[in-house]
Lab assay of single mutants.
Amino acid sequence: YKPCFVCQDKSSGYHYGVSACEGCKGFFRRSIQKNMIYTCHRDKNCVINKVTRNRCQYCRLQKCFEVGMSKESVRND
């Protein structure tokens, strides 16, 4: 598999339409299922990588959408 499109960590396969790691897969699923609203405490362009991905949930979710993750493919079960 290609590296995670969101944070470049080791991917566990294709999730919600893109190559993603377990961490970003779970983060995206929880964010969508719980209708989470995050805020960025900087200027909405935080670097998201394996080391920084937990620092800003707003920018991490934005990057999930930017790389093509589909909220329609998240099931509500």
Rank of each mutant, 00 (worst) to 15 (best):
Q33A: 14
R29I: 13
G23L: 12
N49L: 06
I48L: 08
F5T: 09
V18D: 03
S12P: 06
I48P: 04
N54L: 15
T52G: 10
C21S: 00
C64R: 02
K63P: 01
N54T: 15
Y38G: 03
S11Q: 05
R60S: 03
E72W: 05
Y1S: 09
S11R: 05
V67R: 05
R60F: 13
L61F: 07
R30D: 15
R75N: 13
N45R: 13
G23K: 05
C46G: 07
K71W: 07
N45C: 11
H41W: 11
K10R: 12
F5Q: 09
R42H: 04
H15F: 08
S73H: 09
C64E: 01
R60I: 02
G26C: 08
L61P: 02
H15D: 12
T52K: 10
G68W: 01
N76I: 07
R53S: 14
C59P: 01
E22F: 05
K34L: 13
R42F: 15
F65Y: 11
C24A: 00
K44H: 05
K50N: 12
F65V: 10
F28Q: 01
A20F: 09
K25L: 12
S19E: 11
G68I: 00
F5P: 13
C21I: 00
G68F: 06
K10Q: 15
V51A: 08
R53H: 11
M69V: 03
Y58F: 11
A20C: 13
Y1K: 15
T52I: 09
N45E: 12
R30V: 00
R53P: 14
Q8L: 09
A20M: 06
N54K: 15
M36I: 06
K2V: 08
N35H: 04
C4D: 02
C64F: 00
C4Y: 03
V67Q: 10
K71F: 06
K63Q: 05
K63V: 05
N49S: 08
R53M: 15
H15G: 06
T52N: 12
K50W: 15
H15I: 04
D43K: 11
K10Y: 14
R60K: 10
I32C: 07
G17H: 05
R75M: 15
K2D: 11
F5S: 09
R55G: 15
Q8R: 06
C21H: 01
V18S: 07
D43Y: 08
C56Y: 03
D9P: 00
Y16E: 15
R53N: 14
Y1W: 06
P3R: 05
Q8I: 00
N54D: 15
C56I: 00
E22I: 05
K25H: 06
T39H: 12
R75G: 13
G68K: 04
R30W: 02
R60E: 03
G26D: 15
N49C: 03
I32P: 00
V18L: 04
D9W: 03
C4N: 02
D77C: 13
Y38A: 03
R75Y: 14
E22N: 05
H15R: 06
Y14T: 12
C46E: 04
P3T: 09
D77I: 09
H15W: 06
E66T: 11
F28A: 03
C24L: 03
M36F: 04
G13L: 04
R53I: 14
C21Q: 00
C4R: 01
R55I: 15
Q62C: 05
Y58T: 03
Q8D: 13
Q57D: 15
L61I: 06
R42E: 13
K2I: 07
F28Y: 04
H15C: 11
V6W: 01
C4P: 04
P3I: 10
S19V: 14
C4T: 00
N49E: 11
Q33D: 11
V67A: 10
C7W: 02
V47A: 13
I48V: 09
S11N: 15
S31G: 01
Y16Q: 10
S12K: 06
K50M: 14
Q33E: 10
F28V: 02
D43R: 10
I48N: 04
D43L: 09
R55N: 15
K2H: 13
V6H: 02
G26N: 15
G68P: 02
F5C: 06
N35D: 14
G17E: 08
C59L: 01
Y1F: 12
G13T: 09
Y38F: 06
M36S: 11
E72L: 06
F28E: 00
V47T: 13
K50C: 06
G23W: 07
I32V: 12
R29C: 06
Q62G: 05
C7F: 00
S73I: 12
S31M: 04
R53Q: 15
I37W: 08
E72T: 11
S12G: 06
H15T: 09
M69L: 06
